[in-house]
Each structure stands twice: as C-alpha cells, then as structure tokens.
Amino acid sequence: MGILVDYLEAKAMADRYGIRSVESAYLDSAEAAVEFSKHKPIALKALSGNALHKTKSGLVALNLSGENEIRSAFRNLAEKASAYKPYKILGQRMVSGGLEIILGGSVDPQFGKLVLIGLGGIYVETFRDFALRICPVTRYDAESMIEQLHSKSVIAQDDKARGMLVDLILSVSRMFSDNEVSELDLNPVILHDGTYDAVDIRILR
C-alpha cells in the first residue's frame, strides 16, 4: 500500500512539470471559503486519510456560489468530516462543462512504470477506453496512444487539441519517471475552452 501524498504537495509536483490543475487551497473557516471564491463558483472537498472515497462519504460539495451557500456548505462538510479526523477542507475553483479524461501511472512488476490515458470520470470502468505505454514514453508513443483510443475523435477533435494531449502525456510520463511514485491518478482531467485542468490529483508514494 502506497502512502497518499498531501494534495497541495501533489499539485505542486504537477505544477513543476507544467501540468495544469485547478486553483486550490486549504480553507480553515467558512469566511476563508467565501474569500477564496472571489464571487465565482467553487467546490469544497474534505480530505482525510480515513475516508478513501470522498464522493461516497458525502465529503464533496460542488458548484457552490453565493456567500450563504458557501458558508453553509462549509459548515455542513466540516460536521460530516469530523467523523474522519484528522481532516482538511480543500477549496477548488470549479471548471464547468467539458469532457473528462484520466491520466495516470502505475508500476508493473515485470516492465516497470506505465503511463495511461483514457476516457475518464464515470466512464473509466464502463468503457475501459484507455491506452498504456511503458515509461518514459516518446512523442511517437504518446501520439499512438491517442490514436488507439476509441474516443479519440471526441477528446482530440483537432490538431491543436491532439498536440495538447500529447504534451500532457509526455509531462505525466516525465513526472512519473523522475519521482518516487508508485501510483498516480489525474482523474478527472477536464477538457474545456481549448485547454484542460486536472481536478483531482492522487499520488501514492
């Protein structure tokens, strides 16, 4: 069993490799949450090593806007999370719309580190539309990974989108290769407005 890396540490690692992710901060009060939102929709997530699945444990509140909604969501979340002490509450800027993909890494006992890209979010397990390559991947490998996906015409609609995903795969491969990481999930990564943002980053050492 790997040890889960703190979210903001994981985000900082992704930042160093130029991997985009939504603006995030730990919030210690309802007021801090309101301030963080800057009048734009946010999400709140209670993070605890004692609760593996945030959504199932009711520890996620999405698309919050307006001071009152944010305050009450924060208090509600803090109350639920008190069952999973110690916990932290993470605020994240919402990104709206867009298709969800997954990128990740895992270690095969025989061949070593592998990088994955696939159709993400709720579709991961249903369609199992993903491509894998041994690390470190080349540009050719990254291109052929996208080519391999059934969903390629949806997630890489034009050359620009395709190029962006190729660069993202290469960055994930570099991050995974360079660091002592045993499992890695960027899930979901939301494709929106001609760019992308990782919304959840799980790194296991």
Binding site: I102, G104, F130, L132
Partner: peptide, 11 residues
C-alpha cells in the same frame, strides 16, 4: 489497486 490507473493497468 488503490487507484483507477492501477486497476486498469493489469498484467
């Protein structure tokens, strides 16, 4: 596996 990736990336 603890992650989606590891559960997809079987032997």
């Amino acid at each position: 596996a603890q992650s989606h990736t590891a559960s997809l990336a079987g032997s």
